[in-house]
Design a protein around this nucleic acid. Structure first.
Length: 791
RNA sequence: GCCCGGAUGGCGGAAUCGGUAGACGCAGGGGACUCAAAAUCCCCCGAUGGCAACAUCGUACGAGUUCGAGUCUCGUUCUGGGCACCA
């Protein structure tokens, strides 16, 4: 009977579903292990091969941990709110509330075909009221902690799409979707005070077992810089280079700086007003990217506190109000941007630090190194109340307001008498009403504001008529706590059960894309810390271990719908089977780097599975047959095969935990080649462990073969094969012999051979000795490996 | 501009501690089986020279350290990603 993946996979899918094989025993698990993967956005196009790649990588790790005897919980849900769904719904004219369940059903079908060990009894969608009720609850917890505030903020506004755009959606000052020129608008927005947590978010990184690239991205995003605030008369500037203060030749204020008026002379007032007006109309992105510096002099001067000199005050939009103090001391000799500005306006340039990092023309500090001077100058100015050491962060507060429809309504009510009133927890969820006119308009307020019947509510405090907040929250809030919910799905009385959470969290292993290295992972860490500080959970970091997976390309090119080169998992599973598809995805390259999907490549993996199938079919049924085969062939063969088997068990057991799936598969293929080369009926003991090794990769096939081998219990409950280190050590080894560092041959020698004996054996070999033209000057023996004779 | 990666056969990739470079797989070539094809099985497969044995060269480029470097150090080029008027 040939290997027929279609039939086998259907059989085992049904078997797993029937037995509840993948359902974790949340209450009673003795050794809980939470293996999480980032949940997908259920798009209308269906499951992307990139999703399948990521999920398979997580699944293999999870199945492996289960075979180590752990109680593994592998949940999966859907991140289904957001502007992406909403825009697609508008485009095709289907309400998202109708579209999303359809997409989810399709995803579920595709995911099940992939053979994932997912516990479907604890799935969720962020769009379920039973879920987003608690997303709103999370908002209220932050509110209680005083970490939520409302303020006017400049946003990118697309006049065509009538919506706020994220910075990433603005390309060269234009809307990425319609190409309209983006405008700057000031809108009232809700913010989370994540910047209060900047130092903790940064420091805790050192304690986490995460990919270095991800940690680095987070450090860059948090952007800590240490420096000082220094007073130039009434103007406080921020600098990281106090050592260059003797080269400060002017001061620059951001156009929005509140002190601009006070520092402007009457003669310059018209020019300054005009400049501020123009600057306010420039959109955020072009302002941040343009290289040409503009600005205007205020006509006044301030005192450089180090030199006592009077230096002019300028206004320019290359200084940002959002960062530092909105004012800088300009040192054109040591800052590229200041230099550009100085050149544009013919301002003096004064070098105060030499190439060798020592100070010149800096008064009493002359001769100090940059490092010494930073401290000495701040200390000296601080003594005169002119400076304070200060740390700044690039990290901004998290704007969670979206003036859109498809998201959880922010649970706030505005009352004329009581002011801003949070919705009482008992009144949650604030349901998102089913409306048809959810297209955003030019008003800058959410479409929900057009629905009085929803918008008008009695004030929870005084009962007079009040108004609901009409903004919905950012999708990143939905995904910032979902991992807390999974184990408690089914209990709608709490967001997460305390004892279950204590048992299962923090997440033991988290796998996902590096595109979420910064926002999602940072927001999740922040929310976890806040809930910890509120006394609701015991840990403050949600993900003990995180690994970012790579990207899949196809035939050397990025996959995209427009190129028509997108891999559809269904087709490949149909043709080759889910097991071959899974294994091939993992064989493409290192999991953390991704790989190149080549259509023909999958045949090699399928051949390997076919051979595995055949070897189980052919393998000897009992010990008597084994003895007979050994007698009939070469008895030494079994020893060789067995040694390779044990080496393979070790290799796969080492590779899988570090997600080195491609090399684990290669090792199993190598073993298969050795097994076949022996040209005899394989022993059952030579094949059985291989079925276990392959099980995380090709779960359906492994279950089937395990059953064919006569086991009543499933392969995932069979444990993991062990290897015998004694078997791995050969008595005789091939010692590589080099002469002057070049390989000239190898000799078969006893494992622990002495240097003298090794040299004797090497010189006794004619192929080697002909290169030894004189008395050896030096001998290097690397035991068990190599001998180098230097002449 | 700053901060992280990366560069190895025709291709994807391997080499875990400085010790036989190219495992494993794809593609390609040759053979067995077959009326034939597919499938399957066996062999070859970095470059150059050589009938061969074998030799020389070879891990982006240039130096260096070392008995020995794909691996370590310095410099250069190209490339992927992150951040970016953040002072």
């Amino acid at each position: 009977m040939p290997y027929d993946p279609g039939a086998i996979e259907a059989k085992w899918r049904a078997h797993w579903a029937e037995r509840g094989s993948n359902v974790a025993d949340i209450k009673n698990a003795a050794r809980p292990y939470y293996a999480l993967m980032m949940f997908p956005y259920p798009s209308a196009e269906g499951l992307h091969v990139g999703n399948m790649f990521a999920f398979t990588g997580n699944d293999i790790f999870a199945r492996f941990q289960r075979m180590q005897g752990l109680d593994v919980f592998e949940p999966l849900g859907y991140d289904a709110f957001g502007i992406h769904s909403e825009n697609y719904a508008l485009k095709v004219g289907v309400h998202p509330a109708e579209m999303i369940p359809r997409n989810i059903a399709n995803f579920r079908r595709q995911l099940e075909r992939g053979g994932l060990m997912v516990d479907w009894s604890r799935s969720l969608s962020t769009t379920d009221p039973e879920y987003y009720r608690w997303t709103q609850w999370v908002f209220l917890q932050l509110y209680k902690q005083g970490l939520v505030h409302k303020k006017a903020a400049a946003v990118n506004w697309c006049p065509t799409d009538k919506t706020v755009l994220a910075n990433e959606q603005v390309i060269a000052g234009e809307c990425e979707r319609c190409g309209s020129k983006v405008e700057q608008r000031f809108l009232e927005q809700w913010f989370f005070a994540i910047s209060n947590y900047a130092e903790r978010l940064l420091n805790n990184l050192d304690t986490l077992d995460w990919s270095d690239t991800t940690k680095t991205a987070q450090r860059n995003w948090i952007g800590k810089s240490e420096g000082a605030e220094i007073w130039f008369d009434g103007i406080k500037v921020f600098t990281t280079r106090p050592d260059t203060i003797y080269g400060a030749t002017y001061v620059v204020l951001a156009p929005e700086h509140p002190l601009v008026d006070a520092h402007t002379t009457d003669a310059q007032r018209a020019a300054v007003e005009g400049y501020r007006d123009r600057a306010s109309r420039r959109d955020l992105v072009s302002r941040k990217t343009t290289k040409d510096k503009t600005g205007v002099a205020t006509g006044t001067t301030v005192t450089n506190p180090a030199t006592g000199e009077q230096i002019p005050v300028w206004v320019s939009d290359y200084v940002l109000m959002e960062y530092g103090t909105g004012a800088i001391m300009a040192v054109p000799a040591h800052d590229e941007r200041d230099l550009e500005f100085a050149h544009g306006f013919a301002l003096p340039v004064k070098q105060v630090v030499r190439e060798d990092e020592t100070l010149v023309e800096s008064g009493e500090f002359t001769g100090m190194t940059v490092h010494e001077a930073k401290h000495a100058i701040v200390k000296s100015l601080a003594a005169m109340q002119k400076a304070t050491p200060v740390t700044n962060y690039r990290l901004h507060d998290w704007c969670i307001s979206r003036q859109r429809y498809w998201g959880p309504p922010i649970p706030i009510i505005y009352c004329d008498d009581c002011g801003v009133v949070p919705v009482p927890e008992k009144d949650l969820p604030v349901l998102l009403p089913m409306i048809d006119d959810f297209k955003p308009d030019d008003s800058g307020v959410s479409p929900l504001a057009r629905h009085d019947e929803w918008y008008r509510v009695p004030c929870p405090t005084c009962g007079t008529m009040a108004r609901r907040e009409t903004d919905v929250s950012d999708t990143f809030l939905d995904s910032a706590w979902y991992f807390l919910r999974y184990p408690s799905v089914g209990d709608d009385s709490v967001p997460f059960d305390a004892s279950i959470t204590r048992k299962w969290l923090p997440v033991d292993s988290y796998i996902g894309g590096n595109e979420h290295a910064v926002l999602h992972l940072l927001y999740s860490r922040f929310v976890t810390m806040v809930l910890h500080d509120a006394g609701l959970i015991e840990f403050e970091e949600p993900f003990t271990r995180f690994r970012a997976h790579g990207l899949i390309i196809r035939e050397g090119a990025k996959m995209s719908k427009s190129k028509g080169n997108v891999v559809n998992p269904d087709e490949y599973i149909e043709t080759w089977g889910a097991d071959a598809f899974r294994t091939y995805l993992m064989f493409l390259g290192p999991f953390e780097e991704g790989g190149d999907f080549r259509d023909k490549g999958i045949s090699g993996v399928r051949r390997f599975l076919d051979r595995l199938w055949a070897s189980v079919r052919d393998c000897a049924a009992d010990a008597a047959t084994d003895a007979a085969t050994d007698a009939a062939t070469d008895a030494a063969t079994h020893a060789e095969v067995e040694r390779k088997l044990h080496a393979t068990i070790r290799k796969v057991g080492e590779d899988v935990p570090r997600l080195s799936y491609n090399t684990a598969i290669a090792a199993m293929m190598e073993y298969m080649n050795v097994l076949r080369k022996s040209d005899r009926t394989p022993r059952r003991s030579e094949v059985e462990p291989l079925v276990q090794l392959v099980a995380p990769f090709a779960p359906h096939l492994a279950e089937e073969l395990w059953q064919q081998l006569g086991h009543a219990q499933g392969v995932f409950d069979s444990g993991w094969p062990s290897f015998d280190p004694a078997l791995l050590a050969e008595d005789e080894i091939d010692l590589v012999v080099q002469v002057n560092g070049k390989v000239r041959g190898k000799v078969r020698v006893p494992r622990g051979i002495s240097e003298a004996d090794a040299v004797a054996r090497a010189t006794g070999d004619a192929a080697i000795s002909r290169f030894i033209t004189s008395e050896p000057k030096k001998i290097v023996l690397v035991p068990g490996r190599l001998l180098n004779i230097v002449v």
